[in-house]
């Protein structure tokens, strides 16, 4: 009888616990849903063909789009990727291949520290190292600032993925008389391909919303610009400038740009998850 009672109370506790966990999880999802709902509500109105193909117009005129910011953002991400992806993968390979060495230990510490450096500091570094010597704001300097932010993300994900590649595969390749560098390039890297790809996507997602480091590097530009060494606009910069402006048209554009940015980052994150599962 006593046993039966205690079983009942246990089952009741079990149910209560499940409810608490469920409610807390739902609470975690709610803010995201609210944000998405709010942005979709305000931003979807401005989605039109012109929004993607036109540049912003003068105050007083209606219409206009954010095509210059879309192109600018792509240029910035492209520049950042050109630097951060190869370098990040190479450092990641080094770290996973030399787990014990002191240099690797120190490198790992540096990568972790770099990840914690505030993004505005990346901006000022790029300003001092590139904008000042080159004599002007540019997409290139913004791309470099973003590259420094992306580097630790790509490095970490490469290292963590490659550590999981079994040593037996490497040995299988070495035992066939394959030189070390080919073994890394043709056996180890392909085995970790999906993890590395997802790290790259997460890195891109992370930097594509960055505003602070672009304030004094890419600077922003109300016109279409495709020159890597001239100031360009980017979606986050456009949001920052237009959302705080007193004009309603501009504010609408800022909402549209926010929605576009959120959708972009969201799809990158989902793609990254899907790649890891495969």
């Amino acid at each position: 009888m006593k046993l039966k009672n205690s079983l009942k109370s246990r089952l009741a506790k079990d149910v209560a616990f499940k409810i608490v966990v469920g409610v807390l999880s739902a609470m975690l999802i709610l803010p995201l849903l609210f944000i998405l709902f709010y942005i979709v509500k305000h931003g979807s109105a401005s989605f039109s063909w012109g929004f993607f193909t036109q540049t912003p117009v003068q105050v007083g005129e209606t219409g206009g789009g954010v095509s210059n910011a879309i192109i600018g953002t792509l240029m910035l991400i492209g520049t950042a990727s050109v630097f951060a992806i190869p370098l990040g993968i190479l450092i990641g390979i080094y770290l996973s291949e030399n787990r014990q060495s002191k240099v690797a230990e120190f490198t790992r510490l540096c990568v972790d520290t770099l990840q914690g450096v505030p993004s505005i500091v990346m901006g000022i570094i790029a300003y001092a190292w590139i904008v000042m010597p080159m004599g002007g704001f540019s997409a290139f300097s913004g791309g470099v600032a973003l590259a420094i932010m992306m580097l630790p993300i790509v490095t970490k994900s490469t290292e963590e993925t490659l550590i999981l590649v079994p040593d037996s595969l490497k040995e299988a390749s070495l035992a066939l008389g394959v030189p070390y560098h080919s073994t890394i390039l043709k056996v180890v890297l392909p085995a970790g391909k999906s993890g590395i790809m997802s790290g790259i996507l997460l890195g891109v997602a992370r930097v594509s919303g960055e505003t602070a480091p672009l304030l004094f590097t890419a600077f922003g530009n109300p016109f279409m610009a495709t020159n890597l060494f001239k100031p360009v606009n980017s979606l986050p910069l456009l949001i920052f400038n237009y959302a705080t402006s007193p004009y309603e048209d501009w504010q609408t554009l800022a909402w549209g740009a926010s929605l576009l940015l959120v959708l972009f980052v969201l799809s990158l994150s989902i793609l990254a998850k899907v790649m890891v599962k495969k």
Partner: peptide, 13 residues
């Protein structure tokens, strides 16, 4: 000199 290991290790890719 070829070598075969304890656990089968074909290249998964």
């Amino acid at each position: 000199i070829g070598m075969v290991f304890q656990r089968p290790n074909p290249f998964p890719t």
